[in-house]
Nucleic acid binder design. Sequence first.
DNA 1: TTCTTAAAGGTCAAAAAAGGTCAGTGATGA
DNA 2: TCATCACTGACCTTTTTTGACCTTTAAGAA
Lengths: 158, 158
Amino acid sequence: MGNLADRIEAYLKNILGESEGGSVILQRGFLAEVFSCAPSQINYVLTTRFTVEKGYLVESRRGGGGFLRIVRLGFDEESNFHRIMNELLGKEVSQRRANNLLDNLFEEGIISERETILLKSVLADKIIGESLGDTHAARLRAMMMKEILIGISRTDIN
Amino acid sequence: MGNLADRIEAYLKNILGESEGGSVILQRGFLAEVFSCAPSQINYVLTTRFTVEKGYLVESRRGGGGFLRIVRLGFDEESNFHRIMNELLGKEVSQRRANNLLDNLFEEGIISERETILLKSVLADKIIGESLGDTHAARLRAMMMKEILIGISRTDIN
DNA sequence: TTCTTAAAGGTCAAAAAAGGTCAGTGATGA
DNA sequence: TCATCACTGACCTTTTTTGACCTTTAAGAA
């Protein structure tokens, strides 16, 4: 496709493919210059093409020496992971369900025992149910679970 | 990282690592000269990167023969864990403080990089600040941080 | 001893250097 | 034609960097 957004997308996926470590760091202003477009165009590309659903994570820092980092996530759109994350989207997750999910991840060797314990403790009703009602807690827990799944899918660490 | 503050931070952590006893003494003016920057830039680095939550103590003396001393505070002793819990974690903890504390734990080798990333993601304002206001989020975050510290103090795993 | 001065470091606000957001406009294709 | 996608520009937030001005201390002069 000829349009700018597609070309920027292709460019980024290309350097991501070249790179070691599953992530790439660059500057928005520089990239905008390369493609001689508005800087906000870069954000457009990132928010439409490099979403979690499509298997990417974008982090950034502002200010002097600021940057964008694009991280590839280790799953594709057909995977179990992807299915679970979609199910989590905007839903509610009970403590029991979260614990089961974490236990499964542990048994499959995806997270360590310690990670399991730490994450369970932080997701416990006793903690997040304190200030929130049941439904709000379950909704927050769903968001947290999604973050966890994203985190363990990162290909730039470990 | 490209920026000055990060390079000065790296430089200081490097000489701190080399040094016996985990402390270093140097002169602000000299350091500013080395990096050819404004002397106040050194203060900026110290106040943003060498905070107590991150596990550093900075002392100084003015006047002739003045100096800066940076001390790395380890907390492997039992008592220190309680000090952290009581002093650094009050009733409320901002995202920044939580991140700093987790960075500290990582640098001490107490948690892994992956644990750091997972826990930060779950404690993020973007997540727990969603349904709660800022203050409530900070209160929840404090409870979560305490759970995390309890979890990593457990001697029965790993 | 007391005063003066030079040699440190400290503070703060303003400027600079990034990236973020959003509404609106233009393009495109079913 | 009209709904969706692409793109821009104005304005915002965060982080870094600098400079002007302030305070403290040691050393030496009076």
